[in-house]
Simulated scan of single mutants.
Amino acid sequence: MPSVRLSAPPTKHLFLTAALCALLAACGGGDDDASTPTAAPSAPPPPAAPVPAAPTFAACFTVTPGVAYTMTDPDGGGSGKVLMVNEAFDGSARAGSVEFVGTTDVRSAATYWSPESNGIRFWGSVDYDATGAAQSKHVHSPEFLLPLSLQAGQSTVLKYTDTTQQLTGAQAGQTDTEAFEETWTFEGFETLTLGGKTFTDTCRVRTLAASAGEDGPSTLWFAKGFGVIRVRHTNSAGQVVEESSLDAVTAQP
């Protein structure tokens, strides 16, 4: 606001000017253009990028029915087809993995497992004859349960029984039960690129039977939705004796 000259008597005009300046905090009248400009509101910050969910042990054992792929034959005889299913086993629908003879539709084996509230439950398996007919069924006892609490580097000892029922042939109806003891070690999450597809956070699991003898541990890689996408068997000296891995994804619903 301009100062008022004290050396001359104030005029009515000067008094009005001083009064307006005092009211408006700016000389020049009450025009809106003369007021102090108001800063424009700042734009809201962009939304934070979602944080990826941490991988979980249980997720590796989920099954997506309809997923299909081929695995290399450990004996070098080409590839074999694998299909993820949800189908009847031992009286209930179970998630599992079916293996076929080469790339035909003739079944050779099926294995069933699923994540439960208290662990990964392995239910059992079915073996098929050369025609694809079910030949024998193996049902695991409830103790074949892999704890969900396993952290990378931790192991658990599983003691369970396997009841085998012969379904065909001269021994059809015969049942045998055998006890097993195995050490399962969760070695950690691992990213694999197989058959042109990258699988993140696969679970690398090592198994060793108490009565392994000359056989060494086996290592299996479980991938979410796909089941076992790589397997390696070694002898007691640590040498690889068999290995198989996914080489092509043929169906992914």
Rank of each mutant, 00 (worst) to 15 (best):
V231L: 09
P44I: 08
P9T: 12
G66T: 13
T17K: 11
T17F: 11
Q154T: 05
T156E: 01
P52W: 14
T104W: 04
F222A: 00
A49P: 13
A133P: 00
P50S: 12
T156M: 00
L148G: 04
E99S: 04
E214I: 07
C60R: 07
S155A: 04
V4T: 15
K81P: 11
A237L: 11
Q154V: 02
D90G: 03
V157T: 12
R107W: 01
E190Q: 09
V82N: 07
E243L: 05
Q166M: 07
G28R: 11
L24S: 15
F186T: 06
V139G: 02
R232T: 07
A209M: 05
T131G: 08
T164Y: 01
L6N: 12
A130F: 03
A251F: 06
G195S: 08
L192S: 06
F15E: 15
T198H: 09
G80C: 09
A22R: 09
G216W: 03
T103Y: 08
R230C: 04
L208E: 10
K197I: 10
R94C: 08
L208C: 07
C21K: 10
V67F: 14
Q252G: 05
T234D: 04
T163Q: 03
H233Y: 08
P46L: 15
F199G: 04
S125N: 04
A170V: 06
G225Q: 04
S79G: 13
G119V: 06
S117Q: 03
D105N: 15
T163C: 01
A22Q: 15
D32A: 12
P147A: 01
G119Y: 04
E178Q: 09
S218R: 07
D176L: 04
R232I: 03
L83N: 10
A209H: 05
P55N: 11
A88P: 08
S211K: 10
E99M: 03
E214H: 07
P52M: 13
F222Q: 03
S79V: 09
N118L: 00
D127T: 05
D127Y: 01
H233Q: 09
D105P: 06
Q135M: 01
Q154P: 05
V139M: 02
I229Q: 04
T191A: 11
P9N: 11
H13K: 12
Y69I: 15
K12R: 14
A40N: 14
G216P: 08
G66W: 15
A49Y: 10
V82I: 12
P41I: 15
A170T: 10
N86K: 15
H233C: 00
Y69R: 11
W123Q: 00
A48H: 11
V126P: 00
